[in-house]
């Protein structure tokens, strides 16, 4: 199939935006209500038989979930990534299970991780997180690091060398959890910060002691 005829098929969707990223990658953006039609079209008329993946992205600032359907054609050797956005507060979408069986897995995964409900999907039920009852954890407003800090203790170590250093007036100066903060760098090593920290806790003690 030529590129023109593929474009022609895609352009049957009125509101579509097509971006040719490179030879074998096409990005299309469609309104949520035309996504199923688009997939029907490209599966039925352009041999895009293989649903490679469905990805959900939480754009919390836009209050939207983005759903990305990656579909591959074994005949055209081309991948179309169909992007659409849905309302984050009313996180519902129609299933594409009737078109693509693998949607079962991806939709169930997204339901569990993001809380997007897929109407008509065969197994909208717990899957990986069978014993989790909190917020869908892949949502941006779930702070996994805070959860870990609340739930688990840091290992307490008190080896001899640390005891020795503490006796000399040294010891632990910057704990890893102080500086890491999900990779956000906060300088804790300057004298200014260390003096401040010294006031807050006694240097030379073990972890959560």
């Amino acid at each position: 199939m030529s590129l023109e005829s593929l474009n022609e098929i895609l352009n049957k969707i009125n509101t579509i935006k097509i971006t040719h990223k490179h030879k074998r990658r096409i990005r299309v953006d469609v309104k949520a209500d035309s996504l199923t039609t688009l997939l029907e079209l490209i599966k039925g008329q352009a041999s895009f038989l293989h649903l490679s993946a469905i990805t959900c992205v939480d754009w919390i600032e836009d209050n939207q979930f983005e759903l990305v359907y990656h579909v591959w054609s074994y005949e055209e050797n081309c991948l179309i990534s169909a992007h659409t956005r849905i309302d984050r507060d009313d996180a519902k979408f129609v299933t594409v299970y009737d078109l693509y069986k693998p949607a079962d897995f991806f939709e169930r995964d997204i339901y569990e991780m993001y809380g997007v409900f897929f109407i008509g999907s065969p197994r909208m039920e717990k899957f990986i997180l069978t014993e989790w009852f909190g917020m869908p954890p892949m949502r941006k407003d779930f702070d996994s690091e805070a959860y870990v800090q609340e739930t688990f203790n840091w290992t307490e170590y008190n080896p001899d060398w640390l005891q020795e250093l503490s006796d000399q007036g040294g010891g632990i100066a910057i704990k890893p959890e102080d500086i890491r903060l999900s990779g956000t760098l906060h300088n804790k090593a300057t004298h200014r910060e260390r003096e401040k920290a010294k006031k807050e806790h006694v240097v030379g003690k073990g972890w959560k002691s």
């Binding site: 000399q168 010891g171 632990i172 910057i174 890893p176 804790k188």
Partner: peptide, 22 residues
């Protein structure tokens, strides 16, 4: 030199900076 770059790059928060008075 105690710059603590190792601590910042550590992806598992495995590095603690320790003060050595000597």
């Amino acid at each position: 030199i105690g710059c603590s770059s190792c601590q910042k790059i550590c992806d598992n928060a495995a590095i603690t900076m320790v003060e050595v008075p000597s």
